[in-house]
Amino acid sequence: MTASALTRPGQRERLPVKLAEIDWRLVGLLCLVAGVGAMMLHSVGGGSWEPWAANHLIRVGFCLVMMLVLALVDLRLWFALAYPVYLGGLVLLVGVELFGYTAMGAQRWLDLGFMRLQPSEIMKVGIVLALARWYHGTSAQDARLSWKLLIPIVMIGAPVLLVAHQPDLGTAMLIALTGAAIMFMAGLSWKLILAAGAAFVAAVPPFVLFVLHEYQRERILTFLNPEADPSGAGYHIMQSKIAMGSGGFLGKGYGLGSQSQLEFLPEKHTDFIFAALSEEFGFVGSFTVLAVFAAIILISLRIASLSHSHFGRLAAAGVTATFAFYILINGAMVMGLAPVVGVPMPLLSYGGTVLLTVMVGFGLIQAVRVHRYLELPKGRGLF
């Protein structure tokens, strides 16, 4: 399909044309990783489809259909909903502070009766949309170095502080890193980047000492020296490293991972599923999955680069950055290179909320590709 055909009045609105413009390579790779996730959930579930693998496949099927539907949504509608989604997520986060549901020592949910909603997941998409829209209507000079940069800093800082207070340090990190990545891709001055880096380094000690909760400080100390308490605070990291190391080059074989099968590996179906995969399929299996993740990231960045609108470029690149940070943080966590912060491996780990958020993000990426020739107004509003 040529660009002229897609930009001909009325032609791009036809459903068959839109479906043809979806990047089916990306869809296939997402299904491949989700399939590997189902296979591993079947393994760590003792060779049974219950309680995790079957539910994972059902959720993947639902989210895949939803992603394809979202891919057909006009980019102008995504643009119009950017600020409402962000503000709605912010209001819900304030609601969590006031009357949120508490479980496992954290107040992260709103109990709606029929379901428990985690507003921080909405904010992962909301921050991308809002920043992409703000930068779409901002000059290159203002995006590089200007007092107006206080606006996106506040837009990022407000949800980060609210989520960190729940406490949910992993999600707060994802939102902060995604926001910083969008500011960088929008053309932020290197002077500000270096100044921000220096300020971050200087702020780490007082942040750790006076802001973090006791259990969060313990996680950092455990990360620095997990052997100090191998059966207590350091248990998660130690067992994860044992599982990954015991897999060797080719792994022990499907369903034969002793750490996961004998219940030594904690959270084997969520945060540490990549360690279980490494034990059963070794370096070769782990590298292959990471290579597929890399292909997904490269294809998504390519889609971002093809968009004719600044909003489309930043929205697709921002979602891709969130996905990449998921992988980097979880991978570093299970290898003992970062503290345990409760960030799952996308598409592999069991969990409906994160899967839904990730697939909504890829629906946005696909929408950017389908409508890549669409020009959006440079002003802040649509109307």
Score class of each variant (00 low, 15 high):
264 F>Q: 04
201 V>M: 14
59 R>Y: 00
270 T>V: 11
80 A>K: 08
330 N>G: 10
383 F>L: 15
123 M>E: 12
45 G>N: 05
243 A>T: 02
318 G>T: 09
272 F>M: 13
71 A>F: 07
270 T>G: 02
32 L>S: 12
189 S>D: 15
191 K>M: 10
195 A>T: 01
348 L>P: 05
75 L>R: 01
360 V>Q: 02
161 L>A: 15
196 A>T: 03
274 F>S: 02
60 V>P: 06
280 E>A: 01
378 K>D: 15
99 F>M: 12
368 V>E: 12
296 I>D: 11
146 S>D: 13
147 W>Y: 07
13 E>P: 04
124 K>F: 08
174 L>I: 08
116 R>N: 13
184 F>D: 07
315 A>E: 09
75 L>A: 08
128 V>P: 06
116 R>V: 11
304 A>E: 12
61 G>C: 13
199 A>Q: 05
346 P>H: 07
209 L>V: 09
8 R>Q: 14
20 A>Q: 10
276 A>G: 05
121 E>F: 03
130 A>Y: 01
105 G>Q: 05
259 Q>M: 13
286 S>C: 13
42 H>M: 06
139 S>G: 15
267 E>Q: 07
199 A>V: 08
59 R>T: 00
161 L>Y: 06
90 L>S: 02
312 G>I: 09
357 T>C: 13
321 A>R: 02
174 L>T: 01
294 A>H: 05
182 I>R: 00
111 D>K: 02
333 M>T: 01
247 G>L: 05
377 P>H: 14
318 G>M: 04
296 I>A: 10
28 G>I: 08
124 K>T: 04
110 L>V: 07
348 L>G: 05
101 Y>D: 15
363 G>E: 11
119 P>T: 09
337 L>S: 08
139 S>M: 02
367 A>E: 12
24 W>D: 11
204 V>I: 15
67 M>E: 12
362 F>K: 01
185 M>H: 06
247 G>N: 05
292 V>M: 05
309 S>D: 10
273 I>D: 06
221 L>G: 11
288 T>A: 14
249 F>A: 15
259 Q>T: 00
81 L>C: 14
262 L>P: 08
341 V>R: 01
